[in-house]
Design a binder for these strands. Structure first.
Lengths: 342, 342
DNA sequence: TTGTACGCGTTATCAG
DNA sequence: CTGATAACGCGTACAA
């Protein structure tokens, strides 16, 4: 199928390429109504499809958005295994397509930056999820496209942020345990990196303890990777070494699922012996047995919001600085994994 | 950050743009070693990054691959909720990036085709998952880029196919039940469309029954949508109207999870009262309680294979026709949801 | 309303 | 044999 160019259309319509360009870009004021008709018909008949590469070349707009997702540590694959990111993508893609944009989804080789990709592809903007080393963000600042950060507490005037109140989430979960009579509450979490989301959740956990006059036991914090397997492992440790623990707050549902399995492996019932709360409310949370009590964030909505902010930022040609972070709401979904202690 | 063009590099190196182009594209045979050096250094110092749009324009290669995923019926979002697709994407993206390609991930508006996107973006190839109406494929044939189909039995000489033996999978699952003494075996499945994957699984189910001299009961087939919710609903029906059923083959793990929940809702234990087998072996299968017996396909590998086939097809400039379908292996993973009768 | 220069990189052609 | 010039691909927008 040979490519139909704007020239083909102009010939068929008996006008200039400029006229065609004007008509097809809505600048109809610049040409006569009859020319508009002729062009419309010619384009229709020839089934003309514009070449975005050519457009991109002339006006530096690609209608392309870069979306970056973290990768698994070991292998070099996207962390899409975590449904959290899948849902985010759903939201982002839906909103972008609706506005005529396409999404380039990719991970970033560790050590590599994103500047190359963004320049090569003439990206109109990017949504970055996950946390990276500082140099990565420094690089990003050099590009003059709008960028939305998700899962990041880098409040730099260069970046838009669509986040949640992670500290509050950690607090809510822990408080819920306390309200139900629990006092020995463990935390199972991924690596606590400075200014990362889990650090905030951890801080919320500590605040709730302190507020209730409970001691913070460093022994009760199990910190490693955000995986089902580690949740399981942590539960084994808890069952073996800390039988006094009656509640576990896992900073992600994926880990919470692992915790439940690990507890069961060790002969503990959930929630009879140990209560569990997760974070995110990914779809498996309600599918688990028993259904998981968790801190819900509407991830799809978050993706949509992120895309929204990006699109409006792209629209604002005047390079005004990003407004303050958008903070999405959090809700505790009380399902069946928390037991009320007499 | 102003864009560095090939001209900037040529000036800095004191040579022509042609020389720069040659060097940067490995045609070093055309220029002297010292020129090569000068160009290399200049490009390095200026941190030159080529513009893919310009390249795409001149040689019709974009290094861009389109990946299409089905959408949810109701809302207009990607079906990425089903981890099967997430895993596929992981494999595809990893392989593509490794070869310097990028992926445009998108759904397709119902009724719309993919021709527009492919032309606009000058895609080098596409990987299509899911099943669409025939006109969609007819459209696709008009484009002259290689296309890999996943989840499709359209064996047309225009398309590459990376599939599994769905019929065999259905047979394996059913046979496993029979081998364990089950005779009243239900099928819970998404819509059985002609030449779709579930039809093949359904056929395998029937073959196993027939081979064992068992009757095929249309009543035992519960057919609707590929969702957790429908699995649950089907289980309710089974428990209420067909207490004689002791085994349920769900044609996707997602549905199997729903079935297990539904059975439990109805007071039935898995596998004590009813056994269950799923399909796919998505990661939640091993996370469920009890861990789900299922037909495993290595989905990530399938994604990688699909990308591989696409890339080699793109490499073969001689427009040779696609070889026969690549069929990926299937394994029954025997976990804890099938009970041996008697 | 149109002719045409331009954006960027590639490559065929031609001069040194 | 090295390397420079210039046309080209496609769509846009300014000058005429």
């Amino acid at each position: 199928m040979k490519r139909i160019t704007i020239r083909d259309v102009s010939v068929k319509a008996g006008v200039s390429t400029a006229a065609v360009s004007y008509v097809l870009n809505g600048r109809e004021g610049k040409v006569s109504p009859e020319t508009v008709l002729k062009v419309r018909r010619a384009a229709e008949e020839l089934n003309y499809i514009p070449d975005f590469s050519a457009r991109s070349l002339v006006n530096n707009k690609s209608k392309l958005i870069g979306v970056v997702i973290p990768q698994t540590e070991d292998r070099k694959q996207l962390l899409l295994q975590n449904p959290f990111y899948s849902e985010l993508i759903c939201g982002i893609e839906a909103r972008l397509r609706q506005s005529g944009y396409h999404m380039i989804l990719s991970g970033v080789e560790k050590g590599e930056g994103y500047l190359d990709t963004s320049m090569q592809r003439n990206l109109d903007g990017a949504i970055i999820t996950g946390i990276y080393q500082e140099s990565f963000y420094e690089d990003l600042k050099k590009v003059r496209m709008p960028i939305v950060l998700i899962d990041s507490y880098i409040y730099d005037s260069h970046f838009h942020v669509v986040g949640i109140d992670d500290e509050l989430g950690g607090y809510m979960a822990t408080k819920h345990f306390i309200d139900n009579g629990h006092t020995n509450i463990a935390l199972v979490t991924g690596l606590i990196r400075k200014d990362g989301v889990v650090e905030k959740r951890f801080l919320g956990y500590k605040r709730a303890l302190k507020e209730a006059g409970l001691f913070y036991h460093p022994d009760y914090v199990f910190e490693h990777s955000v995986t089902y397997e580690y949740g399981q492992e942590a539960a084994h440790l808890i069952a073996a070494k800390h039988p006094e623990i009656t509640a576990v707050f896992a900073t992600s549902d994926l880990m919470a699922m692992g915790v439940m399995r690990g507890l069961r492996d060790a002969g503990k019932q959930v929630p009879e012996h140990v209560s569990v709360i997760g974070f995110d409310d990914i779809s498996v949370a309600r599918m688990s047995t028993p259904p998981l009590t968790t801190i819900m964030q509407d991830t799809i909505a978050r993706g949509i919001t992120a895309a929204d902010r990006l699109l409006t930022a792209i629209g604002n040609t005047d390079g005004e600085l990003p407004a303050e972070p958008t903070i999405m709401p959090l809700t505790l979904v009380d399902r069946d994994t928390v037991r009320k202690l007499t």
